[in-house]
């Protein structure tokens, strides 16, 4: 037995056996399971069938024209873009200083603070949603698109904090010291040394936060006023019934969000590769 194994180890190429084949088939089935619904969404957005059922009928762009011509839907899209962009601003304005403080300072209650900050992405979104609803109602703030923005800002800042913090941890502080030694003022050091080093983490986490905000339901559900975001609009439509217009909108969302995410992954990877040479030699 042992000798046989040694022989096998010598020849690099292992034969593909039944077990491996079975595993491969299982893996492919799981991938198929993951993509069937998405494929369904895309295929039926181009199909003239007004009920999502087989067999397929004619190819059409009708649902796209209808979706783009639907004023409620377009308003919801713009609301979502507005909410997403504003929420990302909050995430950055709060997230970057928080990450810097966590990276560079020790203060009493730091561990508790760290746990608190990531709670919104650890706990079900609904808990953050209802507690913020409680808060806004108690202090007499009416629900509107602004409460939604604050909600998203709070729920998603943790993404910026964790990403920027992780990058700062790998960042060599001696470059900053060198900059200070060479006479740069603190804000110059931040602008020209620190910021370029965390830039891709900032861009990447902004894109992720925007994508998540664009898709957010549990927090929005409790904080929304009269202005619907896109998911809330879709939610109200699909509860009434199924319309292929939603498939068309869905397909657009799928393409846009996958593009944004691939860009953000690419940004983060590229910076990780570049991190090496930036570090000074010992």
């Amino acid at each position: 037995m042992a000798t046989v194994t040694l022989h096998d180890a010598g020849t690099r190429k292992k034969p593909i056996d039944a077990g491996t084949t079975g595993l491969g088939v299982a893996a492919l089935c799981v991938l198929a399971f993951l993509y069937t619904p998405i494929a369904t969404l895309i295929v039926f957005s181009f199909n003239s069938n007004s009920i999502t059922r087989l067999p397929l009928e004619d190819f059409t762009f009708d649902w796209y024209t209808r979706a783009l011509g639907n004023p409620d839907l377009m308003t919801a899209v713009w609301n979502s873009v507005f909410v997403g962009v504003s929420a990302v601003m909050i995430c950055l304005a709060i997230g970057i200083p928080t990450a810097l403080a966590l990276d560079r300072h020790d203060f009493p209650g730091k561990t508790v603070f760290r746990r608190l900050v990531i709670l919104p992405i650890t706990l079900p979104g609904l808990i953050t949603g209802v507690s913020m609803l409680t808060f806004f109602r108690s202090v007499g703030v009416d629900l509107s698109i602004w409460t939604v923005i604050i909600g998203h800002g709070t729920a998603l800042t943790a993404i910026v904090v964790t990403n920027v913090f992780a990058r700062l941890q790998r960042f060599d502080r001696r470059i900053e010291e060198a900059s200070a030694d060479l006479g740069a003022r603190p804000w110059q050091t931040f602008r020209h040394v620190t910021l370029p080093n965390i830039r891709s983490a900032i861009i990447g986490s902004s894109l992720i936060s925007f994508t998540l905000s664009f898709d957010e339901i549990p927090v929005t559900f409790f904080l929304t006023g009269r202005d619907n975001t896109l998911p809330m609009y879709i939610w109200s439509v699909i509860r009434r019934g199924i319309t292929p217009e939603i498939n068309a909108v869905g397909t657009i969302i799928v393409i846009v969000s996958i593009t944004l995410i691939l860009i953000s992954v690419f940004m983060m990877h590229r910076e990780n590769d570049r991190a090496g040479p930036v570090r000074p030699a010992r």
């Binding site: 991938l31 998405i38 994508t211 199924i242 996958i258």
Partner: peptide, 26 residues
């Protein structure tokens, strides 16, 4: 490929199952 579906709208992923499993569904 296994991770990407995560970024496809949560609501839409739940909703497609309704269109797949429904009595007039796929």
């Amino acid at each position: 490929a296994a991770i990407v579906p995560l970024w496809v709208s949560y609501l839409l992923r739940a909703y497609t199952w309704k269109t797949i499993l429904g009595s007039e569904g796929i």
